[in-house]
Every structure is written in structure tokens, then in C-alpha cells.
Design a binder for these strands. Structure first.
Lengths: 204, 204
DNA sequence: ACAACTATACCGTCCAGATGGTATAGTCAA
DNA sequence: TTGACTATACCATCTGGACGGTATAGTTGT
């Protein structure tokens, strides 16, 4: 006879089952029955672990977020304490995620799920607030840093939805440009003035 | 007796009905019956105009896309033929859309709908390919132009999902930065080299 | 002018299938 | 004994879609 799995093993297999279904068939086909089948348990067993579908999806978001943040922490450690370190780690972690072609459809489905499941959306918004706080504290001019965050997020957006994404070579060049640009405006005392030839351009 | 509306009047009211439902209640509640109620027609009448729900949603995407592109054309005309003109118009049109607070939830729902309705997704991907082509031809260095497009799209992304978006003042500053940055690298002959102090920074 | 006809713009009803969720009774290994 | 399930039956609700029918507008032949 097979041994019963532990609760945490089963939970992990449920998360992977959800992810597989989202990759293959999208959010529409993510039914409780389908998840149970994919995870090799019954629907009753699934509902033993997650009381509602919304609770399942919220936990799924936590699962993927934790993976991303663990990788982010590693990359932050590698970058050290230099100005812009967090932003560079954020860019690298984002690119790693989006580069995996299997992930594009998974993340597209997850973002779509946020529209339906308010708790998942709330979680993501809190994550972004937290990342934005760290971007603000990364020792760069806040406006410049935010512009670079948007460039990263926009690249993610393009890859995720396959909206005219760059080919791999161009993507690499652009990522390198973004990383390079985090090495400027290190002095947070720099004030940005807006004119035809603004100060933040002269400083480069 | 009341006069029948023309087909195009009814279609417009159907699109607006869809949009209102998406703004208020999201994609989950965008049912044929709900759309019919909101538009003041019956479900049968709705299906007279759109044979399937997917056809309705595809047409809804075309409706909103046309509005965006009409405004984009206006702004392109205002910018004239200068290098980067398209990118500036694209940025301005995008900001105009996202600035309207009612639109945030509408667009979030529309993007979520793309995950479910392949024809709508296909339409959007083609639009982006077209915009990207014009960005490439706008007289800026292609890599730099794409980076700026991503900054615009990332801002849109943040506003749409309410992912730690900037407050209005900061948003305005960042938009101004993006617009300013389209005035550089006017010479498409500029080649970008990647080093610790790349050429594209020296040129500024 | 007017009847005959056609096309358009709907309405109201019905339906098979799927969904999330509940309830219950039982299994089985540690 | 208890935690971790399985298996099955069931329910209320909702969904997109198909259908037959109807009212009005416009066109055409005479």
C-alpha cells in the first residue's frame, strides 16, 4: 500500500496541479474537480485542504510569490549594499521569471485570476507596495528609480501577454540598459528639474 | 409606438453596457443576460446582434481599441514629424486613458478577458505589433525607444492593477521624464555599446 | 396609392451542461 | 484513536445558446 502523504506534501502537489492546469488550459478550466484529478486526490480531499476555491487561489498566489521573493532575496544578497541594488535584483528576478516560456501563460492566467478573486488581488497589491518601498529606499532618485521599475514591469507585461515582446537578443540588450541606468543618480540629493534639457540628463 | 433604434445605435449601447458592467462588477458578472438588461434589450435581441459571447467581446475590444487609436492619431498629428513623435503620442494617449479612474477597473477586466477569449487576445497582440513597428520607425534608437515603451506600459500596468501606482504629482513628473527622454537618440545611426559607461549615456 | 413581400430588430422561453459547495459514510496507516 | 484522506451522491444556481414567434421599416410591382 502507498503511504499517505503529509499535509504539506499534498498542498505542494495541489499548487503544482493548479499551475499545470493554468499553463495548459487557462483559468476557465481551473475547476475544483480538475485540480483534484491533476493532483491525484478526490474533490473532497481537495476541499479538506482548502475550504473554498478562493482560499485555494489565494494560497496559490502566496506559493508563487514566496518563490519569487526567495529568489529576489538571493539576488539582493549578491548585489550587496550598493545604491540601486534592490532595483537590479528586482529586474533580474523578473527577467528570470519571464524568460521561462512555460511561465508566460501561467502568469497571464494568474493575473487574470486577480480580477475575479479579490483576496489574491489584495495580496499582490501589498507585495507591490512593499517592493516599491524598497525601490524608494534603494539610494536612487525616487522618480528615476520608479521609471526604471516601470520599464521592468513593462517588459514583464509584454512577455507575459506576448505583446510584441523583443527577441531574446534585444531583450538582453534592454535589460543591460536598465541595469546600467541603475548606476546613475546614485545621490538621492539630486533634485530633478523639468526643462527641455533637464538636470537628470546632464548628470549622466 | 416607439421607433426602433438603428443597428449601430443599439450596438453602441451594448458596448457601453458591457463597459459599465465591467467597471462596476467585473468580468465574472458580464453575462449575456446582464448585458441585455443594462442595454435595455432582451437576451434574444442581444444575440441577434452578436452570435456568440466571444463575438461580442471581440467587438468590444475593437470598440475600445478604435477609440484609443483615434485619439492616438490626433496626438500624432499634433506632434508632427519629429523623431520620437509616435512614442510621445503613444505615451500621452496611454496616460490619458489610465488617468481616468473609471477606466482602471474597465481595462483590468478587459485584460483579464483576454485570457479567456482567444480572439480578443489575438486582436490585442496584433495591435501591439503595429504600435511596436511604428515605435521602431519613429527615428529613435530602437532599443532606447523600446525601453521607453516599456516604461509607458509599466506605468499603465501599475495604474490598471493599482500596483503601488505613483501619486498624480509623481506620475506627472515621470511622464515628463519619459517625454523628455524621447528627445534624445534622435539619430538612428547611433549605435549602442554596452559597457560600464555606455555610449548612449554619453550622448545625453 | 396600395398591397405584397422582405429584411431587420427584437422578445420570451426553454434547455443541457457545468460549477462551487455540502453531506455522509467509509478506508487506512501511524 | 486520529489525521488524512476517498468515494459518491446530491443540490441550487448559473451559463451560453437555440428556438419560435412578433412588430416594424423599407422595397417593389402594379
Amino acid at each position: 500500500m502507498e503511504q499517505n502523504r503529509t499535509s504539506s506534501q499534498t498542498r505542494e502537489s495541489i499548487f503544482e496541479a493548479c499551475s499545470q492546469i493554468l499553463r495548459r488550459e487557462g483559468l476557465t478550466n481551473l475547476t475544483l474537480q480538475a485540480v483534484a484529478n491533476e493532483a491525484g486526490i478526490s474533490k473532497g480531499g481537495l476541499l479538506y485542504h482548502f475550504e473554498t476555491k478562493e482560499a485555494l487561489i489565494e494560497a496559490l498566489f502566496e506559493y508563487h510569490n514566496n518563490k519569487f521573493e526567495e529568489r529576489l532575496e538571493e539576488l539582493i544578497a549578491i548585489e550587496g549594499e550598493k545604491p540601486g541594488a534592490f532595483l537590479r535584483a528586482y529586474a533580474k528576478a523578473s527577467v528570470e521569471q519571464m524568460t521561462d516560456p512555460e511561465n508566460a501563460s501561467l502568469y497571464a492566467s494568474l493575473f487574470a485570476a486577480e480580477e475575479k478573486y479579490a483576496s489574491a488581488h489584495k495580496l499582490m497589491r501589498e507585495k507591490y507596495v512593499n517592493w516599491q518601498r524598497q525601490i524608494n529606499q534603494s539610494g536612487l532618485d525616487p522618480n528615476w528609480a520608479l521609471l526604471l521599475r516601470f520599464a521592468v514591469d513593462g517588459l514583464w507585461f509584454a512577455e507575459m501577454h506576448r505583446y510584441a515582446p523583443p527577441d531574446p537578443e534585444q531583450r538582453e540588450k534592454i535589460v543591460q540598459m536598465i541595469l546600467d541606468l541603475t548606476h546613475h543618480f546614485d545621490n538621492p540629493g539630486n533634485k530633478i528639474e523639468h526643462s527641455r534639457n533637464p538636470k537628470y540628463l546632464e548628470n549622466l
